[in-house]
Structures are given as structure tokens and as C-alpha cells.
Design a protein around this nucleic acid. Structure first.
Lengths: 198, 198
RNA sequence: GGACACCCCUUUCC
DNA sequence: GGAAAGGGGTGTCC
């Protein structure tokens, strides 16, 4: 399978890099460790029996040329040894809407009751889902400053979809060498091209 | 004159933008209309005979790093075709004091008996001068809750200066693309830099 | 409770 | 340099 070959190639690349570089700063070491672990988990899950570890991993990212402007999202779903990429665009949107849409589109392609790990570089999305959403619902969708929460309809769709699944949200720093995050960024940017053409 | 060239340039820029953009959302259209009207009024008043329309326009804004903290104010006076900018700072003050000071410094640079339009984004200032001041003086500078009015000395200075002129107070939303308001904001911020240095 | 402004911080998108 | 979004806070009034 093509996508799996890609992963093996990347693994090899990283190994070579580790061998050639003599002194890594601690931050970079930790970073590499995370990446390697991530890749290991993926390769491992290829062989894993889905009945034993049914966790589905989702990565997503959004981009927006101009903000607001034409925007795109990219999503990777890694489930049961199957690696899939999705993307889409909107002709006029914002960075945050694309960020949310990427995750939502990922979740939607997943069965109800699934156990998910969703990784994104958007703190707006992660904190929104894990910290702020509860308060917003309690305070009738008002922010701390009393003004209405923006993008309410997408937050509600996300909340509804998330309510039917067991989701663990994970934030990673953007443009920091995270393999899948960078790939999603690429997917999102490619989608923008389509948005501009159409 | 340099400031007039600036205005012409801005007019040209906006014209170009209007020509290139095909479909504007309504909000943006309204915004542009306001800006264009503002610029038109300015250019027009350059040619206007001050004996016929002696109105002096003042814009002012205040800023304050930390609130309380080092603060600055910025004021634009547009009088008889002459465009002038002023600014100043205080090492420790509040946002509202700077907001008031900006207007006061503008008024002071204007002859007694002048007819002024003062534009600010501070509702504290506009409502203070047009609604609340009368009541405070009647009730011996006590607020609705019975406590003393704050910043009394500046309110009194403002009242004295305003009493000698014919002033129309106008409120505009802050950070909303209002040309002169944004410029005053810039002047105020630049002034804070000086406050911090000194 | 409401309004306006001023700040501090975080992340992403340009 | 700016926008899209969120949290925390103060300055002031009704």
C-alpha cells in the first residue's frame, strides 16, 4: 500500500537523521521522541487487532488565505491499519472555521461510539472542546466578556458529534515538524487552490 | 501641504479598492461609505470658507498600558483646512483619564467661542459630557450610588473649556476602521513609548 | 444587571 | 504589520 510505504520511508529518514546528528538540544530530542512514538504507534496499530485497540487517530488542520478569505481543511484518519486523507474548501471563511471543520469532517467519518484521539495545532479548537464549551452552554453561549460566542453552529455540530464518541483532544505546536500535522497543512493548502479556481 | 497629500493618497487607494473588488458584503460597504464621507468632508472643508463653515473637527483617543499604568493620548485638529496632530503622556494614569485628556488638550488648542465637533470612542467621555455632568453638578458631584464622582478635576476642566465653546460630541466604535480614530490610537500608543522611556 | 473603553495572555491564520 | 478566536483583568458610568 502506498501510504504505508511512505511511513516506512519517513521512519528510515528519521533514523538516518538521528545517526548523523551528534548533539541535539533537549527540546528537539523530546520532539523527535514524540514523533517516533507517534510513528511507532501507527506502524504497530497496523498489526494490532482492532478488537484489542480500537482507537482511531485523527489529525486535522485548517488554512485560510487572507483570513477571512478562501480557506481549506485537511484531515487524516488512521483506523485499523487504514490510512486515509480528506480535504475540502470554502470560498470565504476564517482560519478558525477551517480548523474546526477539519476536525468535524474527521469525526463524522467515524462510527458512533468510536474511541478517538484527535490532534490539532489549534488551541482555539482544543480548549473550546475541552474547557470552554461547558461554560458557554451554561451561560447561554456568552463569552467571558458577555458577548455571544462566535461560530456557534459549528461548535454545536462538533459538540453533538463528539457527544456520540469518546474523544481525546491533543494539541501540538504548529509548524514544528509534526509529521501528520504538516501533511494536513499541505492538504488544506492544496484545497485552497481549488477554492480559488472555483 | 503634506497632510493633504496624505488624504489624497488615501482617497485614491480607496477608489482603487472599490474598483477591483466586485462583490462587497453590506457591512463593508457601509464602512467604506462612512470612510469616504469622512474624507470627502475633510477635502471639502479645505476649500470651504471658514466664515461660512467655521466648524473645527477634533478627534481624540487615549491608551494606557496596564490600566492603570503609563498612558498616552492623541488628538487631531482639523480646522480651516489645517490638519494638526498632538499627543502627550503620563507615567501613571488610567484609560479614562487619557481619554478625557486627549479631548481636553484638543479643546484647549481651539479659540474660545469656536464651534467644534469632537469625535471619540469613549462612551465614558461622551455620556459624561452630554448626559451625566449636569446631574453631578446638581448633586454636588455625587454619582447615582451616592459615592463621589471620580476624576472630578478633569471633568471640571473639561466643563469649563466646553462652556466657552459650542461643542457637539460624537461617539464612534473603537477599532472599527475609523480613519482618524485609528490614527489617534496610534499617536496615543507612540506617546506611551515615550512615557516608558522617560 | 448593562454599556463603552483600556490592558495582559494564548494559539492559529495571513 | 493585521485578522480570527478565546481566557484573565481594570477604569468608569448608569
Amino acid at each position: 500500500m502506498k501510504s504505508r510505504e511512505k511511513l516506512f520511508k519517513l521512519l528510515e529518514k528519521i533514523k538516518q537523521q538521528l545517526e548523523t546528528v551528534s548533539d541535539l538540544p533537549e527540546v528537539a530530542t523530546a520532539q523527535l521522541e514524540t514523533d517516533l512514538q507517534s510513528i511507532y504507534n501507527q506502524l504497530n496499530s497496523v498489526k494490532a487487532d482492532p478488537a484489542v485497540d480500537p482507537t482511531i487517530r485523527i489529525w486535522s488542520d485548517g488554512a485560510c488565505s487572507g483570513n477571512p478569505g478562501p480557506g481549506g481543511w485537511g484531515t487524516i484518519i488512521f483506523e485499523d491499519g487504514r490510512y486515509q486523507e480528506f480535504s475540502g474548501f470554502q470560498s470565504k471563511t476564517t482560519n478558525n472555521i477551517m480548523e474546526m471543520t477539519g476536525a468535524l469532517e474527521g469525526i463524522r467519518r467515524t462510527p458512533e461510539g468510536s474511541q478517538l484521539i484527535i490532534t490539532t495545532d489549534s488551541q482555539y479548537l482544543v480548549k473550546g472542546m475541552t474547557e470552554w464549551l461547558r461554560g458557554w452552554k451554561r451561560k447561554n453561549w456568552k463569552k467571558a466578556d458577555g458577548k455571544p460566542v462566535l461560530n456557534k453552529s459549528i461548535w454545536m455540530a462538533l459538540d453533538a458529534a463528539a457527544g456520540l464518541r469518546d474523544i481525546q483532544w491533543q494539541w501540538v505546536k504548529g509548524h514544528n515538524g509534526h509529521l501528520q500535522n504538516e501533511r494536513c497543512d499541505e492538504l488544506a493548502r492544496d484545497a485552497i487552490e481549488e477554492a480559488i479556481k472555483s
